[in-house]
Design a protein around this nucleic acid. Structure first.
Lengths: 242, 242
DNA sequence: CGGACCATTGACCATAGTCAACCGCCGTGG
DNA sequence: CCACGGCGGTTGACTATGGTCAATGGTCCG
């Protein structure tokens, strides 16, 4: 799949765009870059001149505390735009890294900005993406602050399964999920050992299994009920044209 | 201060806007509404046709869990735009309420959207606001998930003090702060009793005091060091024109 | 004066974190 | 071929700490 196709698929999933808008998007400059596992793509403090779209693999945003502790903020699948905020915020307040091996494509900011001036509808579609991003952050605040360990894990799995399914990453109930238990802990604000024990408890419900870098969903209804998962916050309904 | 002044002050703090852009903003329809403490302004599930700007007082966003537990997501001061996402996301994924008494003004979406089409620079300035909003959410994830209780409290106080100071809400080191300890707990993912005990510990450092609905900062350097506060994520540097 | 609300404190309990050991797997290199 | 080391996962034992329950006190207001 061409890099711009990934982006177009993502935008048109909820924002109706005209054919000439799409053609314009497809003509954007797109510099591919391959990342090895754990490679940083951008660093806190950087001032990027381009924004990246995930083409393949998993990316993650994270904060690094003074203590050296890492806090993952979000996970990103193909089509996601993990540093869109660089368009309007000069300095990165967090870093972005690859989780497994990944491919991204970078689009220069000037091109995007002039496209947005020329075609507000495209700007609005990308703006909406950044707002959905924010909605996912809100949910993460609630998940990490209010939910007990088992539903917290379940909710993370629900969200990633739901988002992955939409872009066709799920085959027969199985989603490649290249995080280890330490990273899940750094995502959910839990210690490694707690992740391990609570995964074990979660397994008892036979709704989901997580091992060998794979997430296997046996019973979606059960899993989403354990995780109190309501996909409204992902805002995937098709919007009226604006 | 006129409602639109509050907005203009906020946008021009980091986005240079031309005089005629500002004049255009000042002409927006603006319906004022007064809120009593704890009154909900919008509800999860609503489909707003207008976006609100805080004119006076404190507003907060929150999630409500099935258990009835409340999770506050963000606090908003005059000039903030706590439901800007309603412009592009049809359904509210959270609620917005007043903390103390507050005044908001609502601007119809159609007016904003046609203004944005007409003047992309204004759109970009508002977009930037929504991106800063997202950056604050990221910081909240890290604060609630990674920091111990005392620095967690300190960080919240730092952020609110810093933001309030910028809009002239701080007089002689004192900021009106109408949250009670229960609400601080619902903000930071802590039980009421823990908030109380850790406020006590924090007080021992003589950097800050919180009582009687007021936040009193005695020693900003000490407070920000306890809270590991680095204001970069608030993105308040003036940006180059785009 | 009585009641509501909020802050404060003590006692107790549940649980998440820490420390440490062990296992299984896999890839490397002798 | 096998020995070794590293990594990730698993488990037990212990500890620290945050949550719950409950009681008390202060303040404001009707």
């Amino acid at each position: 799949m061409a890099p711009s196709d990934v982006l177009i698929q993502k935008l048109t999933r909820h924002s109706p765009l005209a054919a000439d808008d799409l053609a314009r998007v497809a003509r954007l400059t797109c510099v591919l870059r391959e990342l090895v596992p754990n490679e940083d793509f951008i660093h806190q403090g950087d001032r990027p001149r381009a924004s990246a779209i995930v083409v393949e693999g998993f990316l993650a945003r994270y904060h690094m505390l003074a203590s050296g502790k890492r806090q993952y903020l979000s996970l990103h699948l193909p089509g996601d735009w993990p540093d869109a905020q660089g368009l309007f915020l000069e300095e990165m307040d967090h870093s972005v890294c690859a989780i497994g091996p990944a491919v991204v494509c970078a689009i220069p900011h000037e091109e995007l900005l002039s496209l947005f001036r020329e075609r507000p509808t495209i700007a609005f579609a990308v703006w909406r993406e950044t707002l959905i991003d924010a909605s996912i952050f809100r949910e993460a605040i609630t998940n990490n602050s209010s939910r007990d360990p088992v539903p917290r894990l379940a909710h993370l799995f629900c969200e990633m399964y739901f988002r992955a399914k939409q872009i066709g990453l799920v085959k027969a109930g199985v989603l490649p999920f290249p995080l280890n238990q330490t990273q899940i802990g750094e995502m959910l604000g839990m210690a490694l050992v707690s992740v391990n024990r609570n995964l074990k408890r979660l397994r008892k419900y036979s709704a989901v299994d997580f091992k060998g870098g794979q997430l296997i969903v046996h019973d979606w209804n059960k899993l989403s009920s354990i995780g109190e998962f309501d996909p409204t916050y992902l805002h995937q309904a098709v919007q009226a044209e604006r």
